[in-house]
């Protein structure tokens, strides 16, 4: 089970895609989109870029199943932390709405 050598062409293609996505995210950020659309677009683009780096630059697409599971576990645990904490913050004021001093 010798390692997989990714052709240079793939690296250049991924690099191109990353550049285009960077330009895209800066471009979209200029417009005032309704609601949470701005942050949604920005994060979606960031996730796509990160996925490209992980899959191709970090060879996870060609790696062993074990490596893939580890990567998935890392993301899963981060999501656990974010989601369960958010479950507090999102529902905290449902029972007794309090006006918060802010904004």
């Amino acid at each position: 089970m010798s390692e997989h050598i990714v052709p240079k062409k793939t690296y250049y293609a991924v690099f191109g895609a990353l550049m285009v996505l960077t330009a895209l995210t800066v471009f979209v950020a200029r417009f005032d989109l309704p609601g949470i659309l701005n942050i949604t677009v920005a994060l979606t683009v960031a996730v796509i870029k990160a996925t490209l780096v992980v899959l191709y630059f970090m060879h996870v697409r060609y790696s062993s199943r074990l490596t893939q599971v580890i990567v998935a576990a890392g993301i899963f645990w981060l999501v656990i932390m974010l989601v369960l904490t958010a479950s507090d913050y999102v529902t905290r004021n449902l029972l007794a709405p309090v006006a918060r001093i802010s904004m």
Binding site: S87, D88, R92
Partner: peptide, 22 residues
């Protein structure tokens, strides 16, 4: 073990709904 930490915080100002989940 990673999904239950909120049970240390039932009497903090944590949301009651989150408390139920935890």
């Amino acid at each position: 073990g990673f999904l239950v930490w909120g049970h240390h915080m039932f009497t903090s100002s944590q949301s009651v709904y989150a408390g139920m989940i935890f």
